Simulated scan of single mutants.
Amino acid sequence: MDNTNRRKFVMNEEATLLLRGLIIGKVMTIVVIGGLLWWFLRPYTLVRKNAVSSSGQSSNPTLISGSTFNSVANVPVGSYNYGGSTAWAPIRQLVDSLIQSDRPELQLRYISPIEGSPGSNSGIRMLLNGQLDFAQLSRPLTEEEYTLAKQQGFTLEQRQVGIDGIAVAVNPSLQVPGLTVEQLQQIYLGQITNWKQVGGQDLPITPFSRNPENIDSVIFPTHTDVSKQQLGSNVQYISSTTEALRQVSKTPGGIYYGSARAIVPQCSVKPLPLGNTPTEFVPSYRQPLVTPEQCPRQRNQVNTEAIKNGSYPITTNLFVIIKQNNGKEEEAGEAYANLLLSDQGQQAIKQAGFAGVR
Rank of each mutant, 00 (worst) to 15 (best):
L94F: 10
R246K: 14
F281L: 15
E145D: 12
E182I: 00
L184A: 13
G119R: 10
V170C: 08
N50T: 07
G56I: 06
H223E: 04
S138Y: 04
L289T: 04
M28Q: 07
G78H: 08
S311L: 06
G153F: 04
G119L: 07
Q346D: 00
F40I: 15
R7V: 15
K150S: 12
T45Q: 14
P278Q: 07
G34H: 08
E293P: 00
S101G: 12
R103T: 14
N326H: 08
F9D: 08
K8I: 14
I99F: 03
A167C: 09
R210L: 15
S101D: 15
S173N: 13
Y312W: 02
V161G: 03
K196T: 11
F154D: 04
F69V: 07
L318N: 04
I64M: 07
N129I: 08
Q57C: 09
G116Q: 10
Q107I: 12
S249P: 07
M11D: 11
G130Q: 06
L179E: 00
V302T: 12
A73S: 12
R139Q: 07
G327A: 11
N3S: 13
L141C: 01
W195G: 11
R7A: 13
S79E: 14
A169I: 08
S227F: 00
K49W: 15
Q57V: 13
R210V: 12
P104Y: 05
I205C: 05
V181E: 07
A355N: 05
S112D: 15
G56W: 02
K196R: 11
L203S: 04
L63K: 10
N60Q: 09
E13W: 08
N214T: 13
Q301S: 09
A15R: 13
F9V: 10
T206P: 02
